[in-house]
Design a protein around this nucleic acid. Sequence first.
RNA 1: UGACCCAUGGUGUAAUUGGCAACACGUCAGAUUUUGGUUCUGAAGAGUCCAGGUUCGAAACCUGGUGGGUCAACCA
Length: 564
Amino acid sequence: MTEEKREELKPSVSFIEQFIIDDLKEGKNQGRIHTRFPPEPNGYLHIGHAKAICLDFGMAKKYGGKCNLRFDDTNPVKEDVEYIDSIKEDIQWLGFDWEEREFYASDYFGKLYEFAKELIGRGLAYIDDQPADIISAQKGTPTAPGTESPYRNRTIEENLDLFERMNKGEFDEGSRVLRAKVDMTSPNMHMRDPIIYRIIKSAHHRTGSAWNVYPMYDFAHGQSDYFEGITHSLCTLEFEVHRPLYDWFIDQLKSDDYRPRQIEFNRLNLTYTMMSKRKLLELVQEGKVRGWDDPRMPTICGLRRRGYTPESIRRFVDLIGYTKVEAINDVLLLEHAIRDDLNIRAPRVFGVLNPLKVIITNYPEGKVEEVTLINNPEDESQGSRNVPFSREVLIEHDDFMEKPANKYFRLAPGMEVRLKGAYIIKCEGFKKNETTGDIEEVYCSYDPDTKSGGEASNKKVKGTLHWVSALHAVDAEVRLYDRLFDHEDPSGQKEDDYRSFLNPGSLKVLTGCKVEPALAQAKPLDKFQFQRLGYFCVDYDSVPGKIVFNRTVSLKDTWGKMNK
RNA sequence: UGACCCAUGGUGUAAUUGGCAACACGUCAGAUUUUGGUUCUGAAGAGUCCAGGUUCGAAACCUGGUGGGUCAACCA
């Protein structure tokens, strides 16, 4: 899109941003905007979380507000410190900053406990002695109303006494719960006397064994928002039915005009992958992938290892928008975002994945020239580099055909191609293994006048190939990734387990690849465009002498598409 | 036999709130190119789930359908 066209476009904001603009205009909450990102520390962040992070932090920043990081750690059996550091790292890597506002729902356990006792005192909460299955049965179904617990009308004194003794550890897990007294006949299941405190005797990663009762999500989240002065509590669509309860608790809690507002938006779904934390954990535990940061995973750390940049992820999130429609986004759009970003920033280099030796028969033996190559035609400031050229070079196996197909612009008997940055060569012959049919060597002549920059270098040839000098190239392992699943929506099929859609070809490890010498110095996460092939990123597994690259994404390939 | 939410090209979103259905991705064609990349130009592709209604005028508002999603964890 041209700048001019961009100017002409009318500004459009998401429905959430419009709500924020309206609230600000109405002067709600003293004109403040304060959001929060509330991960549960029970797994790694994925790109769906990135969508929420961009909104939470993005809206706060755009409207002069703040965004808190708050760990929603109300369930000690499922949560662990292990995840906290990775979550913080991922948010920072994405480019967002919660400054000193790192909070935990567990910071408020004391206040929440007091609030619970206050509700009991006001006759709005009671201890239920029934087991889980009975309580569950009494809740009714979405189409049938629930029935009231026989313990619903205990005295305030008894409720208070029982609640305190629950917290002292006098009762077993599961023997009693604290429920809010709302409405057992409500059409909204969440309003049917929700459980707000349960007994858990496992140690909590932050509060240790200080508590024997822990608040449920519905009793912790909105109140934490309130305690922190949050104005806009943005979450995904499945919490829509929780909103009446969220508001109910805020109504009991509020003392002035301030009140946080929950707004729900659509979750991110991507084709050929899935976002379920539980299922992603299964992939890791069952060894279907190499870990949370396997480059095929939709996790932030996986994308980072794959070679995605924070800018590209933010751009992608910006492109897909926020609505209330449950959509499934084409992963092609994510790939477009990273290509677009890397096109401008990634230096171009030569890497040969599947080498075929070309001997330039009329080039002097032992001679080595340095040829100069532009690092990035899209960015002059990246300068140029020298690459050694000699009599034996390696080209891509695909760049030679014994019997060229129609419109094949590469090397074939009698055909001329340019070795990019060096000379134009002509194929004079080749060596073929008669038993296997493999092409083993190709023999070419070169024209010394066609050296790039030289007098005859403007000669038109159909093809330009990348190459490395056989003598100077360094070894590399290259990992090619394809979609993890071969079904657009692997976890959305009722009949089939998502595992049955695992793509057996999602990882191809290529050894014996050859890259230009300077790459021996590359560091993990360094990003390059292997010219004519794609964008590649140095993997953490690299060791001196053997560098490992991950293919982030291939270049668009119109030739490959023509031949599909 | 419930409540709530949703429905615009293939996909994702717009339409300044009732005034010519637009943008991005993808697709196709052409130009440029020492990357079959990039860039540039152009094209095809929806008449807005359906049926009524209100209105000079409806993608938008109303009614009723249809289709999809969410909700019955002592998970978040």
